[in-house]
Each structure stands twice: as structure tokens, then as C-alpha cells.
Design a binder for these strands. Structure first.
Length: 98
DNA sequence: GCTTTGACTCTCG
DNA sequence: TCGAGAGCCAAAG
């Protein structure tokens, strides 16, 4: 299993209504490749299977998204996550730790 | 095969 | 508090 597979597998663990960070994923994988995690999600071949939109930056920013940040924000909002100016409200509470 | 780039994070001034 | 620099890993050029 390569790096990307591990990232996607871990990402799938994030429950609906919660979010996680690139940092948490990297740490769980036992690496410091925060950027590689983002890179993996960027090239995520599984669209609905892996909820890549639930992975955000460590400071609560939405970060980026292959199909536009706006789209990501809307998806998160539809799952009950409040976002203001690309920042997640109550990020601490919504954060899912592995 | 070396260099650049990216949905990142930390540290320092 | 904020911006610049460095560090990290994988993929693309």
C-alpha cells in the first residue's frame, strides 16, 4: 500500500459533521509529510468515497480544493459545519482526532 | 535523475 | 500579530 492509499483510507475514517487536518493525518501515518497529504487528496481518484473536503488546515482554514474552495465550503456547510471567510467556526469542537 | 511545485506547518524576528 | 524562511514528502516536468 503506497502513501496515497494510506491517506485516503485514513480520510475515510472522518465521520460526517466532523473535520480533520492534514497535520493529524500525517501524524497518524507517522510522517511529517503534511504537504504530501494535501497532494494525495488533491489527486484523490475517489470522489464521494473519500471525503477529502473534511480535511482542512491546522489553523482551521478551509485550505484549498481541486474544484474550488467555495464548493468545499458549501459541502461542509451542508454537513452542519459553519464556515466564515474560509475559517471554520468552532473548529476545535468539530475537529476529529484519530 | 535532478529540479520545481503544492489542498501544509513550524519557527523566528 | 504577521510575514518570511525553512522543512517535509510525493508527483510532475
Amino acid at each position: 500500500m503506497n502513501f496515497n492509499q494510506r491517506v485516503w483510507k485514513l480520510t475515510k475514517r472522518v465521520p460526517k459533521g466532523k473535520v480533520s487536518t492534514y497535520k493529524e493525518i500525517a501524524r497518524k501515518l507517522g510522517t511529517k509529510a503534511y504537504r504530501a497529504v494535501g497532494n494525495a487528496l488533491n489527486k484523490n481518484p475517489y470522489s464521494p468515497e473519500v471525503p477529502c473536503h473534511r480535511v482542512v488546515k491546522s489553523d482551521g482554514c478551509v485550505g484549498g480544493f481541486a474544484r474550488g474552495t467555495r464548493k468545499k465550503v458549501e459541502m461542509l456547510k451542508s454537513e452542519g459545519i459553519k464556515i466564515k471567510n474560509n475559517k471554520i467556526i468552532d473548529f476545535r469542537k468539530k475537529l476529529y482526532k484519530f
